[in-house]
Amino acid sequence: MTDHDDAYGWNDVHALSGAYAIDALDDDERTRFAEHLLRCPDCRDEVSSLREAAAALAVQSAMPAPHVRDRVLSGIASIRPLPPLTDTEGAEVTLLAPRRHRRVPWSTLVLAAAVALLVAVGGVLWLRPSDERPAPLTATTTERVLAAEDATRVTQRFEDGSRATVVVSRSEGRAVILTEDMQLAPAGSDYQLWLVDADDRMEPAGLMPDDPDATMLLHGDASQATGIGVTVEPDGGSPQPTTTPIVMFDLEA
């Protein structure tokens, strides 16, 4: 667990992998766990395995026998996923390590099965005819960037203790920025993001939300970007920068 995870009261953040895999987290939890995946290859492997298990469960065309349903429901309160054992947490890296294949704890698979069963019984997951296939559980673009094997990140720390991190995946062609305790833009202004190319041209990449702790997917193709800048612009943004960047992320350092 990292200091950042602890700061949000996530005393056992790894245990959320099952809920994340079946999209059972709220928007804030989902965003924060996606950020955690950037630093935890074990959780990335676990989420991938659980999604495969959930997809397999979804294609079953028959309801379980009553005694099986009762047994699963009676045990769900006492079953939760075990946090993975890892010695890589908190490491400052610029290139994420390749995924490591490992065995998923049986209790985690039981939890996924139990939740899938509850969803089916509740009528949210409708059983489809055998000739149809359910829609795959797919990650968002932001999640794919954060979990990409070629993802690199550049962090800038500020004097007030806040920090901002840019994560870029060349294979995905996109970039994500994550801020922590960042001061909001002055009244009547916005923080605007820019993709910088090899000729120092700056293309608008979106406005930061008014949130000190934000995760945002930048607009535009970042596959060839050499840097990402942040400027203070009039409310609503500008087609071209009107101020000197307050921070520049060098993606080729």
Rank of each mutant, 00 (worst) to 15 (best):
residue 155 T to P: 00
residue 175 A to V: 14
residue 142 T to K: 05
residue 194 W to R: 02
residue 121 V to R: 08
residue 167 V to L: 03
residue 227 G to K: 02
residue 139 A to R: 07
residue 167 V to P: 06
residue 156 Q to K: 06
residue 22 I to W: 01
residue 75 G to P: 06
residue 121 V to H: 04
residue 61 S to G: 05
residue 160 D to S: 02
residue 189 S to H: 12
residue 143 E to W: 07
residue 217 L to G: 02
residue 183 Q to Y: 08
residue 134 P to M: 01
residue 28 D to F: 06
residue 120 A to W: 13
residue 144 R to F: 04
residue 219 H to L: 08
residue 148 A to T: 08
residue 101 H to M: 00
residue 155 T to K: 08
residue 99 R to L: 11
residue 52 E to D: 09
residue 250 D to N: 14
residue 57 L to Y: 15
residue 53 A to D: 01
residue 82 L to F: 08
residue 146 L to Q: 05
residue 76 I to K: 10
residue 71 R to P: 01
residue 93 V to C: 07
residue 3 D to R: 09
residue 210 D to R: 14
residue 44 R to Q: 10
residue 69 R to P: 11
residue 130 S to G: 09
residue 78 S to R: 15
residue 244 T to C: 02
residue 4 H to C: 00
residue 214 A to G: 03
residue 222 A to D: 07
residue 46 E to R: 04
residue 55 A to E: 14
residue 126 W to M: 05
residue 82 L to H: 08
residue 210 D to I: 00
residue 69 R to W: 10
residue 185 A to L: 06
residue 151 A to V: 15
residue 158 F to E: 00
residue 116 A to C: 15
residue 18 G to W: 03
residue 138 T to Q: 06
residue 118 L to M: 09
residue 131 D to C: 12
residue 18 G to N: 11
residue 117 L to R: 11
residue 208 M to Y: 00
residue 27 D to F: 00
residue 173 G to A: 06
residue 196 V to H: 07
residue 31 T to H: 09
residue 137 L to C: 05
residue 36 H to N: 10
residue 78 S to Y: 04
residue 248 M to E: 12
residue 215 T to P: 04
residue 50 L to F: 01
residue 115 V to S: 02
residue 221 D to Y: 09
residue 14 H to W: 15
residue 236 G to I: 14
residue 189 S to G: 01
residue 95 L to E: 13
residue 19 A to I: 00
residue 202 M to T: 10
residue 43 C to W: 06
residue 65 A to R: 14
residue 79 I to F: 04
residue 219 H to S: 11
residue 158 F to I: 00
residue 117 L to F: 06
residue 42 D to E: 12
residue 188 G to V: 07
residue 226 T to A: 01
residue 61 S to D: 14
residue 217 L to C: 03
residue 223 S to C: 05
residue 235 D to V: 11
residue 40 C to S: 10
residue 127 L to Y: 05
residue 181 D to I: 12
residue 182 M to P: 09
residue 73 L to S: 03
residue 88 T to S: 15
residue 211 D to N: 08
residue 114 A to H: 10
residue 21 A to I: 04
residue 93 V to N: 04
residue 87 D to V: 11
residue 35 E to H: 14
residue 19 A to E: 10
residue 57 L to T: 09
residue 248 M to D: 12
residue 157 R to K: 08
residue 166 V to I: 13
residue 38 L to I: 06
residue 94 T to Y: 07
residue 225 A to Q: 00
residue 65 A to T: 15
residue 99 R to T: 03
residue 223 S to I: 02
residue 87 D to P: 07
